[in-house]
Simulated scan of single mutants.
Amino acid sequence: MSIFIDKIIEAGGSMIPLAICSIVSIAVIIERFVHLRKKNVINDEIVDAACKKIRAEDLDGARELGKASDVVFGQVLYKGIEVHQIEGTELEEALLETSAREMPRLEKFLNVLSLIGSIAPLLGLFGTVYGMILSFDEIAKESVDKELMAQGISVALITTGAGLVIAIPAIIANNYFRARVDYFYTIVEEGILQIMRAYHLAGKETAEETPAAESTDGQD
């Protein structure tokens, strides 16, 4: 391990951009692992509670339930119902539009991982070119300093390896997190469907009760 660290130090300034990429990549991966969890996006409790209120035709109660929640679906529910009530947009359309605005928050920092996955190998390649230049400069001299030439080759190999070591986990993590985000899109859409089922059932029950009440009045 100490030999590996010594080699990195030996590579000098060409390792600085790669070191920055490595630190940023690790920080983003940890942050996304903490926040990209189902409990932060949606839970059964809020969906069930919202459905009960909507079945009782209590849209205001469902909206306040969403407002009080700190999960993403809660904000979709709150803002979607608010749009429905204020603008008169169909509830399903309002919820889907709100979801399209809220859900991209889950992709926060993923472009950073994508960028690091792309540029880390290029930075490594730059270090490789720099190391080879040092080596060929020594070869061009009449008295070749084998130590300096070997150091140049070492820089070339270390930076190439470091670039790949940084890029590969960043690419894997980026793909993993994007798959998680796609999964969350699916379960939020399922939550919206449950809300709409409750909404339509409430409307159907109201429509059935109204003729029954009218029929009773007619008999009197």
Rank of each mutant, 00 (worst) to 15 (best):
A213K: 09
I81Q: 02
A62Y: 04
L122D: 04
T186P: 00
V83F: 14
Q219G: 01
V188F: 03
L157W: 02
I116F: 06
I86H: 07
V129A: 07
R63P: 03
V144S: 02
V112D: 04
I158P: 00
A56M: 13
V47R: 06
I46D: 00
C51W: 06
V83D: 10
E189F: 08
D182C: 03
I9P: 02
P17W: 09
F33R: 01
Q219F: 14
E57G: 13
S118T: 12
L96T: 15
F184V: 03
S2I: 12
G80Q: 00
I116N: 09
E97H: 13
G124H: 05
H84D: 03
K53C: 05
T89K: 09
L65V: 05
F126P: 11
T128I: 11
I81N: 06
K39T: 03
V72M: 09
I81Y: 05
F177I: 00
I54N: 02
I192R: 08
L106H: 12
Q85S: 08
G218F: 15
V165I: 15
A173G: 00
P17G: 06
G218I: 15
E10M: 13
Y199I: 01
K141L: 10
D60K: 11
A49N: 15
K39L: 02
A213V: 05
E205C: 13
V155E: 00
I29Q: 00
L95V: 13
R63Y: 12
L193C: 02
A120N: 03
T159I: 06
V28D: 12
E31K: 04
L115K: 08
V181Y: 03
F4C: 02
D145K: 09
T206I: 10
G117A: 01
L157T: 13
I8A: 10
V71P: 02
Y183K: 14
Q75R: 11
G218D: 15
G13S: 07
A11Y: 01
E93F: 07
I168W: 00
E142C: 04
N40E: 12
E107V: 11
I192M: 13
V41M: 02
R55N: 07
A167E: 02
D58W: 04
C51V: 11
I187W: 12
G124N: 06
G66L: 04
